[in-house]
Structure formats: C-alpha cells, structure tokens
Design a protein around this nucleic acid. Structure first.
Lengths: 225, 225
DNA sequence: AGCAAATTAGCACGATCGTGCTTTTCTCGT
DNA sequence: ACGAGAAAAGCACGATCGTGCTAATTTGCT
C-alpha cells in the first residue's frame, strides 16, 4: 500500500528521512547543535522513536556526516568526473559545487561547516571528517593531475597546491555568500577559478596536444622561500 | 597581595580574564558550544560568580566576539598597517595572520570559526560578526588599493576580488592546518599569496621582488587608513 | 485474517543548561 | 582600621539534554 518507489523496509525509509532532515538542520546549527529532541520534533517523531534509529548522538553525527558526503558525491563529485579530462572537468566540479548553494544539496554545505566546527574536537566524528576531507582534496588533486598528464596544464603545476587553492576559492565563496550574503560571491569565485586555470594552462593549449618541446616558464607561480 | 600592574578595578580585571579564557574555549567548541558552567569551571569561578559579569549568554557571546576581534586587530591588522604600503603591507598582514596559528592570539582563529558557525543563525551575534567580517574585507581591500595607487599593482587589479582571494587562501590554510594537520599548509599559503601578488604586480615598477628593507617607497612616514 | 517481528510512543532518570535570587566575602577610599 | 559598596558564592527554578526500559502499535509474511 505504500506508493514510495523503494525496496527498503519501513525502518530504513524513516531512517533515511531522519538523516536527510538532520543534514538540513545541521547545516544551520552545526553537528554539535544537533539535538535529539529538536530533530525528533522536526521529523515528526517522538524522541525515543527517533532514538531507536540513531543509537547514540555520536552515531547520529557519524551517520549525518556520511549522508552529507554521499549527497555531495552524488551531486557534485561523480557528475564532474564524467566531464572530459582537464579544464572541463575542473569547471564541471566548480559549477556543481557552486550550485550547492541554491539547489538543495545541503550536504556540501554541511561538510564545509563541520570541518570548521570540529577541527579542534578530538573523537570519532572528527576522524571521519578528516578522512572525508583528505579524500576530497585527493580527488581534486587527481582531477588536476589528469589535466597535467593531458598536456592541458603545465608540467610544473603542483596538483595539491592547485587543489588547496581551489578549495580556498570555494571557502571564500561560502564566506561571502552565506555570511556576507554578497551577490557578487559567485562571480568572484568564477573569476578566481579562471585565474587559477589561466596560470596553470599550458602555453600551447587549444585541443591537440603538441609535442612538449620547450616550456619556458615566463612567470612561475611558485616559491619565494 | 596582587602583583598585577593594572589600573582597572578588580571587576574589570576578572571580566577581562573571563573573556580571554572564553576566547580560547570558543576556539575549540565554538560560540554556541560555550557554556556558562563549563566556562566558570575553566576560569575558576562559580557559575553565578561568572554570570554576574556576563549578564546573559548572548551578551557573553557578543563580548567574546569583540574580544577576539580586538585581539586580531592588535596582533595582525594594526601591525601590518605599519608596514610600507603595497606589497610589503600585504606580506606583513599574511605573516602575522599565519602566526595566529602558533603564537597564542586565538582571536584570529575564533572569528574565522564563528563566521562559519553562525552564517545561518539570525540574531545579534550574527549581525555583529557580519559587520566585523565586512570591516575585515574592507581593510584588506584598502591595503590592496593602496598598492594600486602606488603603482606597485596593476591598475586593473580589483581590490575586492583580491581581498576575497586572499581571504580564501587564509581559509584554505586554516583547513589544511587545523583539520588536516598538514605541515605544508603554511608553505602552500605562502605560495598562493606569492602567486596572487605576482599576478597583480605591475610590469614596470619591477623593483626587488622580495627585499622589503631595500625598497624605499615614496612615502613611509604616514599610514593611511 | 492472524501472528511474529519490527517500529514507535510513554515515561523516567540523572545531568546540565540559562537565569534569577539571597547571602557571604572581599576591596579599597577614607 | 573601618565601613560602604563591589564581587563572588550558594542555592533554587524550570527546561532540556542524552539515554535507557517497557508498553503499545504497526508492518509484512503466510
């Protein structure tokens, strides 16, 4: 008699609904601000009814984090990985990431918020979060490295530096967009990404990969120390 | 019996001590995680004894935020404004900002953390925080604009874009340093700043790239604001 | 339909939350 | 040295926190 197109049993469905709701709530109040009673009220359950699904608060936080990461991977990372290698793939990642702001995929917002909230609180939640972010940075770096291997980016582009820079652009976007509510936030993020890409672009781009004869670094964007 | 060299009365001194301690605690658990009982224990006071100083929790959060901003201004912004205009001033800002990590001036950490924590929670605390961050971004933009007016930076450098980019670099630094505990975080931040500066540098005015003592700009005695 | 199993509500618990009083202790100008 | 006023503690309150256990309800299979 259920019209939901799903194979899971009731328990799994309500659990999923709880976690989805929890991600949205945690986006506002943080993982630490998540409260069993509040979340139960928001999900239309009794406190103990909800508690039967999440066996403890820490387990809830871990599950919420995993849900958020899965949302982010499904809405941003995996689609971007389907774009052509190199620059288009970077652009796809940024485009979808920026869209996290308005299209409701709040997981992307939560993992950013949680990473700041928990950076100084030891425990299993922090451990999971750290691993998730390590993986995210690795993914970005691999996307960049693909562009380097393709010849689209210069060989002296350091993927992890680029990944850190790109992540910083996204953090600045969140800051300007969410705290300052600056409507120019997205445009600035795009400008910054374009600058990053311009600095990384191989001098002879334009599709076909020519033989790499001589790369004369007219202006290397690195080191002073 | 007291050896403290201060002019204020006892009340003001303990209040200052409370706030200083509160900044450190809030650096770990956030402004929302601040609790009167916990803070009282950490400060060696009774709950009501502390509560007499901070008249409510919201007032406490506001005062903590003001304390943090003052710490940041005293340790980072004001000293940087004393450096010579343009590039040296940008470098001074970054240097001192990066030092917030280890030298204990936790105010700089808190205002970053609070900005993410409260970006979606209306109220007086968010309002204050937003204004503080607006002012911070304005300050950075003015430092950049000074370099443009000086001819050190190209005329087509947009100060607010540069400010957002620079702030993003700092956010990426906090992420890598505090969550990932990456020892290369600081080096990457410096690399990113150097790239930002290199892209902004005007083609002529090609003085010493990094010789802040040699380069004598036209005007040293005054600082603008 | 009927029944076992899974799901949810009810209720209770100790702890701690923010916030008020009242009382004790301390400070410091005279 | 003392006395007025400031500072801190003691204590109490309702609310809510996370977490259990038990009873009622609902689900899904035969």
């Amino acid at each position: 008699m259920d019209a939901g197109a799903s194979e899971e049993s009731k328990g799994q469905r309500t659990r999923a609904a709880i976690l989805e709701r929890a991600v949205e709530v945690a986006c506002r109040v943080g993982l630490g601000g998540l409260t069993v009673g509040q979340l139960a009220a928001e999900a239309g359950l009794s406190k103990s009814g909800l508690y039967a699904h999440v066996r403890s608060k820490e387990a809830l936080q871990l599950a919420v984090l995993e849900t958020a990461a899965e949302q982010f991977a499904a809405a941003v990372v995996r689609p971007a990985l389907q774009a052509p290698r190199g620059e288009p793939r970077v652009h796809a990642l940024v485009d979808r990431w920026l869209a996290c702001g308005r299209t409701f995929a709040p997981g992307g917002v939560l993992i950013v918020k949680a990473s700041v909230e928990l950076d100084d609180q030891e425990g299993a939640v922090r451990d999971l979060l750290e691993e998730q972010h390590r993986e995210l940075v690795r993914t970005i770096a691999r996307i960049v490295a693909g562009g380097v291997a393709d010849g689209q980016f210069r060989v002296d582009v350091a993927p992890d530096q680029f990944a850190a820079d790109l992540y910083g652009v996204m953090l600045a976007y969140y800051h300007a967009h969410r705290l300052l509510r600056d409507p120019r936030a997205e445009a600035r993020a795009r400008t910054a990404v374009a600058a990053l890409l311009a600095a990384a672009r191989s001098p002879h781009h334009q599709g076909a990969v020519r033989a790499p004869d001589e790369d004369a670094p007219s202006r290397a964007p690195h080191d002073e120390e």
